[in-house]
Design a protein around this nucleic acid. Structure first.
Lengths: 348, 348
DNA sequence: AATCCCATTGCAAAGGATTGCAAGATCCCG
DNA sequence: CGGGATCTTGCAATCCTTTGCAATGGGATT
């Protein structure tokens, strides 16, 4: 049905090879011939068949992206960055969502690997060991996860937490609660480390409330624990969780930030729009997506094998605290546990 | 590098054709031979090269999905439905985001068309005419848009609006404002029609506030107009816009639903989580995604050409009003414009 | 004028899988 | 035991491009 290279060749009165060259290595063919070929190609609406090309060149012109949850605004932003970068480089993008299931990751990785030239694996939940054995043959860039010897793009989570803790400490908070994300999320580990270090450095207490699903409901569930912890500030694993916190706090009539300060992470669009607007550690999501693709393409250019060697490229993007309205000066000591009293939980 | 069908053939001591048949038409080959082939294939980790297969069969095993904005929760839900359905049918999915730009649609459609067997085009913003000339060669299922002679999946927007208006009328509202979505969105037109019809039927006034971007900011911008319109209830094009409305109303200190009721559309996850929780017209998003894929696959099975004929399949999914907390009885007449007084705009 | 070079172009071989056709084997029935 | 039907299996063509190699022809050099 569609025009093939033969049709173009016939129409232009040349051989297939000449058509092929006219299109992909223009300097090798005579200007006049090239013009004739291009005209014929345009007129027939010719577009090279990517399957056939892929068959012989061994490259597909496709990239893959695997994320834990497309409906998480953090990931949609990353996706947009990846998408934009892929498109400007003339690559098409396969996107797969694992629904936060670690087992789906390797499976998808395997399924995708043969149809793409490279994969951006975003925030993988699988243990290092499983990840290690996959994707050795195709280029894979890890995002939000660092494994020795593998290319990766990360953000400086620890520094973000440092900014957050210092901000809170400066406001007089002495006891800070952390609502943890998935145990399997590398970035969660990073944040906890940064948190502990900064808490020590500033001499503030850090109470870890546990691990919660990185969703709104997770925050809702954590809110009461936060209140009962007698902390005057809560840092959430991400903004969505922070929104959940805010929601439950509002429901219980706890004024934010008067009684308790709330701080998120990611800076999703929604965060600026709540009341009060959420103070958060901003992550350059789109930029991360773009960087991932850039790294992938560089890998492909230099030969994927080369990168498997000792020096896997790594890029770390900065984070930035955005102070909005959910953080304020710590309440005077006597008011500290006032709001939490309605629940009969201990203050610990 | 990877094992090819030849390797398997050699290992199993049969010809390539036998391997091919053993894998894709098992009943045609002797049980013993088949077992031998399968063993060899498994042992070598053989996976058929999709490009090569696609070259000869003319099918890629891929589907495409085009949406206006991946970061809109409505679309992420649709994506999830499409994704799930595609995966269970062993298709891979290309996803493209047009960033709400109509021109990107045809472009992407064209680019994608050669790499996929079929495309789900979700909520296209392009005019009918442009859409008509594209994708005649590959199967395209329209979603949230109906064009004669083209397969489509839609939801019963008009009925959703009927439910909304009747709900409000029953609560005593006599003047309802509508915050319109993009002029180019088919579903917006449908909603307006349903709105007018139901307003007439119930004898309520309908005031159209104009067209706004289908984002949070759109709702923020529309809130003041709504207040000034002296309507006692506002229906928003979608939930995200409704959230924007709520935010701005909150900022102005207008109590919802005491002074004004707010009603959204889509039922995105967030809607149930706001305070007060948003009354909305729920759309079966995932189901729509699944239905789109199902239709696409049916089309492919029956030969895409056949469907181009007179009877393009169409499926309309129901909508369902979900009453939550942002709608309440209309305020008594004397209070009607009270809250709006702080702005000096007229009550019209 | 003979030689050599270079630019340009065509031939034909991949690349990996599917599939129509035909051949060989097996089996049943008369 | 012969003939036909039924299973199995292999051969070889085909899908569309890319690309190494060779051939052609003209121009420049000696």
């Amino acid at each position: 049905m569609a025009a093939t290279i033969r049709d173009v060749a016939t129409a232009a009165g040349v051989s297939q090879s000449t058509v092929s060259r006219a299109l992909s290595m223009p300097e090798l063919v005579n200007a006049a011939t090239r013009a004739r070929v291009l005209a014929a190609a345009r007129q027939l609406g010719y577009q090279p068949n990517r399957a056939a090309r892929g068959l012989i060149t061994g490259r597909t012109g496709n990239l893959g992206l695997i994320v834990p949850d497309l409906s998480n605004p953090f990931f949609s932003s990353v996706v947009k960055g990846v998408q934009a970068a892929a498109r400007t480089s003339d690559y098409s993008l396969f996107i797969a969502d694992t629904d936060e299931e670690a087992s789906a990751e390797v499976e998808l990785l395997r399924a995708l690997t043969q149809q793409v030239d490279g994969i951006v694996l975003c925030s993988p939940r699988s243990p290092d060991a499983e990840l290690a054995e996959v994707g050795v043959d195709s280029a894979v860039v890890l995002m939000n996860r660092r494994i020795d010897g593998r290319p990766s793009v990360t953000v400086d989570n620890a520094d973000g937490m440092r900014q957050a803790v210092e901000h809170l400490a400066a406001l007089g908070h002495e006891r800070i609660a952390y609502v943890g994300g998935p145990r399997t999320a590398w970035s969660n580990g990073q944040r906890e480390q940064g948190l502990h270090r900064s808490a020590d450095a500033t001499g503030t207490d850090l109470v870890h409330l546990g691990h919660f699903p990185p969703q709104f409901e997770g925050g809702v569930a954590a809110a009461d624990l936060a209140l009962a912890s007698s902390a005057t500030a809560v840092i959430a694993y991400n903004d969505v969780v922070a929104l959940g916190l805010l929601s439950r706090l509002g429901m219980r009539g706890v004024p934010v930030p008067e009684q308790i300060s709330v701080l998120g992470c990611d800076d999703i669009g929604m965060s600026a729009m709540t009341h009060p607007a959420l103070t958060t550690v901003s992550i350059p999501k789109r930029e991360a997506g773009r960087a991932g693709v850039a790294m992938l393409l560089a890998l492909l250019r230099d030969g994927a094998g080369a990168a498997a060697g000792a020096s896997a490229p790594h890029r770390e993007l900065p984070t930035q605290l955005i102070v909005r309205a959910t953080t304020g000066v710590a309440p005077p000591t006597d008011r500290r546990t006032a709001g939490g009293q309605s629940t009969k939980g201990s203050t610990r």
